[in-house]
Amino acid sequence: MWKFVTGKLLQYVIVIMLMLTLNFLLPRLMPGNPLVFLAGEDVGFMTSKEKEAILEKHGLNDSIVQQYGTYLKNIFTGDFGFSYQQKRPIIELLKERLPWTMLLTGLGLVLSTIIGVLFGTISAWRRGTKTDANLLTMFMFLSAMPSFWVGMILVSVFSAQLGWLPVFGAESAWSNLKGMDRFIDIVKHLILPLTTLVLISVTSTFMIMRYSMLNVLGEDYIMMAKAKGVKEKVIKYKHAMRNALLPVATVFMLSLGFTLGGATVIETVFAYPGVGRLMFESVLSRDYPLIQATFLIITFSVVIANFLADLIYPILDPKVGKHNG
């Protein structure tokens, strides 16, 4: 087992190093003056001395190897650079945004997986019946709706007309709420974006689970379990669901990697202060260091999620792991 883990770990360290190197090279391979990226349009009004000072400050006069060394050191000490548009260190921005994104997309992923799995199982178990047909229609309908539209409808009904829930943000600004009150405030702000996220993402899990469960129910070992006299509930959950969950687990792990990237559209519609919106803002304002940092976060989390999947999969599926470790 440990040999397997360290082997995998080594693989991922190599992947991360490659990724960091690419991230380092990318802006240096792009055409144009680095000054434009660093100082923006103002560069035209600068004196050569000022330009020199900026290059010196960012170590751009050093050799490429030295620059690479500094870059790695900075990344590993948590220094992702400085956002010129927001006038703040990027690590501060990330620290501010990441928790909200993790709350929204993490919870969204967990909820849509649970709901999808549950209804997918029911649908497959009653294949061909009215329940199955209704569920299938409902989930297809959900997946056909664009997320910004669902978000806007929810806002207009529950916030604008009924006034039950807040329109935007992750919590009330300048309210100084503490403890339980703050928690309730946060939950209230979370409900609409979370609902939107779950509504538009639940269908894929449902479809995968339903299809996978249908396949498993046709397997001989299910009939064997029946012939053995195993109770229906036990067949459903112990024998069928356990096997049918494997593809869902794969998709879950893949999506987990992207949760830190946030849900750009939904965060924008609800003005939710997550990483997705940060990325959107950084692209709009051509804030290159920030774009780089957010992309780096996403790649990091994808790699970490893959590593987790590699660790968890052998536990879920005995066929995986032992032999390719």
Binding site: E219, D220, Y221, M223, M224, A225, A227, K228, H239, R242, N243, L316, D317, P318, K319
Partner: peptide, 15 residues
């Protein structure tokens, strides 16, 4: 009454 199924390959639950 018990059964030895057709294609025992698939008659055992893989997990």
């Amino acid at each position: 009454i018990s059964v030895i199924p057709q294609s025992a390959m698939n008659a055992l639950n893989p997990v």
